[in-house]
Design a protein around this nucleic acid. Structure first.
Length: 472
RNA sequence: GGCGCGAUAGCAAAGCGGUUAUGCCGUGGCCUGCAAAGCCAUUUAGGCCGGUUCGACUCCGGCUCGCGCCUCCA
């Protein structure tokens, strides 16, 4: 029995799908005007893990993750760059796809874009006006009348009377109530626009998710997810739009992943304390980053630092080391195996990946061919451990980067190596010379070679089958 | 001001009213020409104050501290 923490009820609830054995899931994706950062990586990886677990549990999953390809920041950035918003957004969609692929994120079933759903949004806004939930202002903007919807605030636990609209932002005078939010923005100079009954303009942010989720999943669907920061106002507004339009509940379960933090502060664009995925991947293996993300529960805050990634790398290395040199095939999982039972119980408990990972380490310790095969199979459920162990262990995890603040030499357990870029050929040549020295009992020379390689970040391991190596 | 979340060993991070979480790091040992890996052993817990209970890290209350949302943000 799968239980999910539902933000709407603030409780863990047994998951009951609307349609037997099917899951419809809508997740708010990215606004594509820049490279994705680690916070975005967390959303992608977390909901990828969730969709994988549903599939492993024999659900037929329809996973929709939208792309916001028109908004203020996109328009501004495109104007700054003197290019069209289409050129700008396509470039960053491509970058996002690359980042996601590296992180082992399976593509969602559908990735609808706002700009190709303008008609559906206009239709929805029209219905909201007809039903008395929205109004067109004199300036051509259309607003949602927040107080026309009884349930406003039910997701975020806010009360309209307690919200302090305009305390930090100037209130738009065209609004009847300061808390009303925009559904349609009248065109301004140098902005892309579409025709509408209210004149040329473009959609507000929230309406795209209401329109696209209804079009692709229906008016009532199972799960709606996204980052915690979208809970209010974005998701609250989506509910107001969708439920007022359709007169039925929008989503049964609302899921929100926790923030990535830096020095105990939220990682965000506005604070400027973010690390892009591609920057991090210059230093750390993508699977290490995925492992790092899944090592914490998805609702908990996740502190980002090089030290934590080093720790994740060491832990993942242990699992790959266990898988080394054996035929661990990915087989159909025997869900009656005691460790598989534990794993399933953990995942069924609101996707408790830290507990599920503890099972992985226990399997690595048991170290029978059966347990290692199960380790690899369960790893696949999490999108981990599918690489060839030697390939993982010999990959260049580190590159030279001694810029201040980039690497904590005191906290890290691994030092940077200037010569980490030794070629495989060079390494093998040195290993061969050491082997010769060993044969001649010239241990002094053998140890000299070992030390030289160690200084370059290469660890040698003598086994009955010969000498193998890995990168520290 | 309103609303919400959290506080676990050196670091990270879970479950659980009584029985080893797990990983990294540290220490001792086995193994090894020396190592590495692995294995065995081992040191470090549950913010503070009360309450409930035979028994609380786990439930309840208060306090302190940290964080988040109330504005675009994953």
């Amino acid at each position: 029995m799968l239980k999910i923490y539902n933000t709407l009820t603030r409780n863990k609830q047994t998951f009951v799908p609307i349609h037997v054995n099917k899951v419809q899931m809508y997740v708010c994706g990215m606004t594509v005007y820049d490279y994705c950062h680690i916070g975005h990586a967390r959303v992608m990886v977390v909901f990828d893990m969730i969709s994988r677990w549903f599939r492993a549990s024999d659900y037929e999953v329809t996973y929709v993750r939208n792309i916001t390809d028109v908004d203020d920041k996109i328009i501004q950035r495109a104007n700054d760059n003197k290019e069209s918003i289409g050129e700008l957004t396509q470039r960053f969609i491509d970058a996002m796809d690359e980042d996601a692929a590296q992180l082992g994120v399976i593509r969602p079933n559908l990735e609808p874009r706002a700009t190709t759903h303008i008609d559906a949004m206009i239709a929805m806004i029209s219905r909201l006006i007809e039903k008395g939930h929205a109004y067109a202002a004199d300036n051509g903007d259309v607003f949602y009348a927040v107080r026309s919807f009884d349930g406003y605030g039910k997701l975020s636990g806010k009360s309209l009377d307690d919200l302090r609209a305009g305390e930090r932002v100037e209130v738009d005078s065209a609004k009847k109530d300061p808390l009303d939010f925009v559904l349609w923005k009248a065109v301004k100079p140098n902005e892309p626009n579409w025709d509408s009954p209210w004149g040329p303009g473009r959609p507000g942010w929230h309406i795209e998710c209401s329109a696209m989720s209804a079009q692709h999943l229906g008016e009532h669907f199972d799960i709606h997810g996204g980052g915690q920061d979208l809970q209010f106002p974005h998701h609250e507004n989506e509910i107001a739009q969708s439920e007022a339009t359709h007169s039925c509940q929008m989503a049964n379960y609302w899921m929100h992943n926790g923030f990535v933090r830096v020095d105990d502060e939220k990682m965000s664009k506005s604070l400027g304390n973010f690390f892009t995925i591609r920057t991090v991947l210059e230093t750390y293996d993508a699977e290490v980053v995925r492992f790092f993300i899944l090592r914490a529960h998805y609702r908990s805050p996740l502190n980002y630092s090089d030290k934590h990634l080093d720790d994740a790398k060491a832990a993942l290395t242990r699992l790959y080391t266990a898988l080394r040199g054996i035929d661990a095939n990915v087989n159909a999982i025997d869900w009656n195996h005691p460790q598989a039972v534990r794993f399933k119980a953990a995942m069924d408990d609101d996707f408790n990946t830290p507990e599920a990972m503890a099972v992985l380490f226990d399997l690595a310790k048991i170290k029978t061919s059966e347990s290692l095969s199960l380790l690899k199979s369960l790893g696949r459920v999490l999108g981990l451990l599918q690489d060839d162990p030697e390939a993982f262990l010999q990959r260049k995890h580190y590159v030279m980067n001694l810029e201040p603040g980039h690497y904590d030499l005191k906290g890290g357990n691994l030092d940077f190596n200037v010569n980490a870029g030794l070629s495989d050929e060079k390494i093998n040549t040195m290993i061969n010379s050491r082997t010769e020295a060993k044969k001649a009992k010239n241990y002094e020379e053998a140890d000299r070679v070992r030390q030289e390689l160690a200084d370059a970040g290469i660890v040698l391991e003598d086994t009955p089958q010969g000498t193998t190596w890995r990168r520290a």
